[in-house]
Amino acid sequence: MPAPRPEAASPGTAPGGPGAPAAAAGPAGDAPLLERFERTIADNQRIEPRDWMPEDYRASLVRQIAQHAHSEIIGMQPEGNWLTRAPSLRRKAILLAKVQDEAGHGLYLYSAAETLGVDRAELLDLLHAGRQRYSSIFNYPTLTWADVGAIGWLVDGAAIMNQVPLCRCSYGPYARAMVRICKEESFHQRQGFELLHTLSHGTEAQQEMAQDAVNRWWWPSLMMFGPPDDASPHSARSMAWKIKLFSNDELRQKFIDVCVPQAEVLGVTLPDPELRWNEERGHYDHGQIDWAEFRAVLRGDGPCNAQRLAHRRRAHVEGAWVREAAAAYAAKRAAETALRTAGASA
């Protein structure tokens, strides 16, 4: 929801419109406000929509939350691809519930972003124009039913690893959205794992399907954590602001450590011959990630980039007349009410 209108301006402050940050600088400049902002974060307290915040913090958050929201929406496509073909009614229901949740999560996140003074419509325009991103994992195709399982196990698994710490991030609306989302996502990963487990313990064809999907989704899932720390220029600032709680490499390592034993239970082989427990480090060593592939997909040269955006744009354009109708109807009813009220008080 957009940030509420502040009460009428007191001297020295600029009146804010909806969504505008509250107090502007007083005579001493931003310094005291910045100090209060930094102290709030250092105390692990939340910054709320009406608080003063540096413009960079606000802009970074808008970008981060919007990207997260766009990811939920775009993420509906690869999985939605199998809704009409799910091989049992139970699986169909589970997948439909999952995709519905993802749409709902997009809504929570757009609402959180809107508290920072942007509109969902603006953010969608930026997405459609290719000026805001979504997680590049969704630029890969779901070629088989097993891909649905791999996405649940690996992609949702990676997302959860990222999201749980964000429940404690510094921005209130984002942290609260993360809490809601994490609670609802508890079944998303489990259903994926169970789906794959059923396949890997099924017919020969099903086992092959499971292994093939894991082969294709493993490395891209590792790339979800972003570039290596030494190639991540904005990380330090995000971590100081507590909108990023762990480094890319830390989370990626944690994810690998958790997945290796899970893969063993699944009976699938992770497509990395260099995966090996390192007793000294207390972690799994792993092979080199193909960062060239990551960069290519990031700049649009992935298997599904064009398709994902085209699908989104088409839905948006084809739905314009519907949204216009809803607005027109609401306007008519509001005009009627105004007329009635005016008549009543005449």
Partner: peptide
């Protein structure tokens, strides 16, 4: 009635951790 929204609904082998 939407039992499948609960994590406990899924048949996960006991030895699996972090799920």
């Amino acid at each position: 009635d939407k039992a499948f929204r609960h994590p406990t609904y899924y048949d996960i082998p006991a030895q699996v951790q972090h799920l």
